[in-house]
Structures are given as C-alpha cells and as structure tokens.
C-alpha cells in the first residue's frame, strides 16, 4: 500500500511542480508603451483605440493587416500592426490589449508594434437594455 501512495505523491508533486513552472513562464507582463519600445521580447500592451482623423483605423489589404493606433494610460501613442483577421468585436471596442513587440517599420519610417494577438474590450453597452424611440412607434402591422 505504501508504494502506491509514494507513487501517487510523486505524480502529484511532479505535476504540481510542472504546473508552477508553466504558470510562471506563461505570464506575459503588461507594460506601457515606453517600456515596450525598449524591450526586445514579446510583451503585452493595452490602451484605448484612437479613431479620429489623425489616427485612422486602416485595413492594409496588401498585407491583410490591420493598422490602428492605441494610447496607453500614460498618454503615449503607438501604431499597432496586427497580422490577422480583424476581430469581430473590433469596430465597437473602446480599447484593446495587444501581444507583440516593437520594431522599426521601413515603409513608414517609424516604430510600430507588430502584434499577433489582440484581446479586444467588450463595448460596455453590451448588456444594457435600452429602448430606442422607434421601438415604441406603432406600426401599420400593430394590432394585427
């Protein structure tokens, strides 16, 4: 019987140890844009998506990339180039997190954040039930 328990504890101990290693090695830190510019390894940044005329969301059809600007908590802006299909909730999202790294872009001559994954923010109005005036308007089919 004791042998069984020893083996069981070994399995459990090994699995837990391995879990702790996976845990610590899978955490990618969130950094601000300034730190991201200085870091060479993949990081995560997050901020609000700018959508005005100076910072337009552009679909680069040649590269199938999505280019947009984000501004982090310290008011620093950077252009993100996301290589991937535009996330479904992107147009309505106020902000997003992006995983990637900063590199120099030869075409535009500035540093961009090359990203391989985005986690977009859910629009806050997702769950609110609000009633548009049109919903109350009696239509011709009313009363049928």
């Amino acid at each position: 019987m004791n042998k069984m328990y020893i083996i069981a504890f070994l399995v459990i101990g090994g699995a837990l140890g391995f879990t702790m290693w996976s845990f610590s090695s899978s955490l990618t830190p969130y950094v601000d844009v300034k730190t991201a510019r200085k870091t060479n390894t993949p990081v995560q940044i997050r901020g609000i998506i700018l959508r005005d005329n100076a910072h337009q969301v552009v679909r680069d059809s040649k590269k199938n990339a999505l280019r947009f600007w984000i501004k982090d908590q310290n008011q620093e802006e950077i252009e993100v180039v996301y290589y991937g299909a535009k996330p479904d909730a992107f147009d309505a999202a106020p902000g997003t997190a992006a995983h990637g790294y900063v590199r120099h872009d030869a075409e535009t001559g500035r540093d961009i954040f090359a990203s391989d994954s985005l986690i977009v923010q859910c629009p806050s109005k997702y769950n609110d039930v609000k009633y548009k005036d049109a919903m109350y308007k009696q239509t011709a089919s009313a009363g049928k």
Partner: peptide
C-alpha cells in the same frame, strides 16, 4: 448592429 435598442451603433461582425 449590436445595440439595436440604443441610439448608438455598436457594429459587430460574424464570419
């Protein structure tokens, strides 16, 4: 439009 009930548009897409 995600939020048909509100006056603001919240466009989403499904592919």
């Amino acid at each position: 439009n995600l939020n048909t009930a509100s006056s603001e548009d919240a466009l989403q897409r499904i592919r």
